[in-house]
């Protein structure tokens, strides 16, 4: 069998390439088929799963209503050391980029935390961006959170551009990603 391939290598190669070209043609995707950018999922390229959560002051915020703005979703808990370490950096970049349209939503995994712990944390770090309370854990489930903190960089169309699992994120990383989101804005 091998010697047969050896003797007719050119014909064998052409046959393989012809079959390959045929496979490419039949596996093409018809125009208009749905792409991942239209599907909700906690993954790069997908639409960020929507949620409506209340801030610690009781104001309701819905993610989909922020379309048109780049959004950084940061899921955290007050007992988590890397979450504590990156909060001052988040506050600094928020101050710097909020005028350009950046929104930061810090979702407290309240089902794994305590309301009093979260409140003390917000006061300690003087956070001015919305801190949302995920009391039921639904948002953490929808975003398939396996480690805290986890951050999702969502572009103005609502698609997840990048996910950073763990922390603390460096200021350079945050600024590079945020500037990239802002550049994408229409």
């Amino acid at each position: 069998m091998i010697s047969l391939f050896s003797r007719h290598w050119t014909w064998f190669s052409l046959l393989i390439l012809l079959l390959g070209a045929f496979w490419i043609a039949i596996s093409a995707i018809p125009p208009g088929s749905p792409t991942v950018s239209e599907i909700y999922g906690p993954r790069q390229g997908f639409l960020a799963p929507d949620f409506t959560l209340q801030t610690i002051q009781g104001k309701s915020i819905t993610l989909s209503k922020l379309r048109g703005h780049p959004v950084l979703i940061n899921i955290w808990a007050s007992w988590c050391p890397p979450c504590r370490a990156e909060m001052p950096t988040l506050q600094r970049v928020y101050q710097q980029y909020k005028e350009s349209g950046l929104e930061i939503l810090a979702i407290n995994a309240t089902n794994q935390d305590s309301r009093s712990g979260a409140l003390a944390f917000i006061q300690q770090y003087g956070l001015t961006y919305p801190v949302l309370m995920d009391t039921s854990g639904d948002a953490s489930t929808a975003y398939q959170i396996r480690s805290l903190p986890t951050s999702f960089f969502v572009n103005s169309k609502g698609n997840i551009q990048e996910i950073v699992i763990g922390g603390p994120m460096s200021e350079a990383l945050l600024r590079v990603r945020i500037e990239s989101l802002l550049e994408e804005q229409p």
């Binding site: 490419i24 043609a25 596996s27 093409a28 995707i29 125009p31």
Partner: peptide
């Protein structure tokens, strides 16, 4: 028109 880049 719908061909997959990686295949090409």
């Amino acid at each position: 028109n719908g061909l997959r880049q990686a295949q090409i």
